[in-house]
């Protein structure tokens, strides 16, 4: 019994480190693939780590009008995102603290992080921060309900909002193919693209004021603050990939009472899933153009409607 607890604690701790260590790698990989698809050499895959270390060592330049909210926000954003990412099963299901938060809470934690990020954008009092914040909350006001409704669909299929339970049910193969699942998957991918500020919603590589959302909010950040915010953004991308992977591709996830070998398999499978997801994301981003800001609501509205359709189908077809 105590052995199980110790193993699960180790898995939980390992999970926190794994997500933290893998997050920059995923972003570096996506950047590299994108560059190669454009026939560019591209920065090394490990470049995000170097960027983070360089930023962490630099001094912080604070605007004169910045308040304590501006200085506290990076730590809170990072902490909320990290906690959320630590509660999503990546390589194993036996997370000790997975019962402390379900999928709705994870969505809420991301909401908390975004709340502080949007406030930080407004704090300095320049137009750039304001434009970023106001667009970010507009995008979130559509993406968040879509996410919650996707959670409804998954919860109705698995009979639980706990992500570990959902992943377990999915892995057991008892669910089979469902139209609702397909709709939920499409909606979740659209939400993930919007929430992570990827093309076609936002361009993570640009600093052109007409198109940017996330980069506009963090324009005033520098040094260690910027490093934490970047790391939080990497973690968020990893989190969404992990959620999609553990629900829709739960193969290889180690059981709660797994042997070390199974954990190794789980880790290998997870890295493989990340690579596939990163490649697909890069391919998608390369093959599509950024859309105008006011086309984004249509894009996200589609996600909202698909998710709602999926949930409605569940409500209509299921008595449980």
């Amino acid at each position: 019994m105590t052995w199980d607890v110790a193993v699960n604690l180790a898995i939980q701790g390992g999970q926190m480190l794994v997500v933290l260590l893998l997050a920059p790698l995923l972003t570096g990989f996506v950047r590299k693939v994108k560059a190669r698809l454009l026939r560019r050499q591209g920065p090394p895959v490990l470049q995000p780590y170097r960027d983070l270390l360089r930023l962490l060592r630099k001094e912080v330049v604070l605007a004169d009008s910045a308040s304590w909210v501006f200085r506290v926000a990076p730590y809170l954003i990072f902490a909320a995102t990290w906690v959320a990412a630590a509660l999503v099963p990546t390589f194993g299901l036996g997370l000790t603290f997975s019962w402390s938060a379900d999928l709705i809470v994870i969505a809420g934690l991301l909401g908390s992080a975004r709340f502080f990020l949007a406030l930080a954008g407004l704090d300095v009092g320049t137009s750039f921060g304001g434009i970023g914040s106001s667009r970010e909350v507009m995008i979130a006001s559509l993406a968040e309900p879509a996410l919650i409704i996707v959670v409804f669909t998954l919860a109705l299929i698995a009979g639980s909002t706990q992500l570990s339970t959902i992943a377990g049910v999915m892995e057991s193969g008892a669910v089979g193919l469902r139209v609702s699942l397909l709709l939920a998957l499409v909606a979740l991918i659209i939400v993930a693209i919007a929430e992570n500020g990827r093309i076609p919603v936002d361009n993570p590589a640009t600093h052109l004021e007409l198109t940017m959302v996330h980069e506009a909010m963090v324009l005033e950040y520098s040094g260690r603050h910027l490093a934490l915010i970047e790391l939080a953004a990497f973690l968020k991308l990893l989190l969404y990939v992990s959620v999609i992977a553990c629900v829709f591709a739960p193969w290889g996830l180690a059981r709660p009472d797994a042997a070390p070998a199974a954990l190794g398999i789980g880790l290998g499978a997870y890295v493989g899933k990340l690579a596939v997801a990163g490649f697909l994301l890069a391919l998608f981003e390369t093959s599509i153009a950024k859309m105008r800001v006011f086309r984004v609501p249509v894009f996200l509205g589609a996600a909202l409607m698909l998710a709602l359709l999926g949930t409605l189908l569940m409500f209509v077809t299921r008595v449980r």
């Binding site: 009008s65 730590y75 320049t126 324009l219 040094g223 490093a227």
Partner: peptide
């Protein structure tokens, strides 16, 4: 998590702060 990251960053990375005008 917030406290640990703040302590770690301030201890091992950098704690220097400079004030300046916002980007105009």
């Amino acid at each position: 998590a917030a406290w640990l990251s703040a302590v770690a960053v301030h201890r091992w990375a950098s704690r220097a702060v400079r004030r300046g005008p916002a980007w105009d």
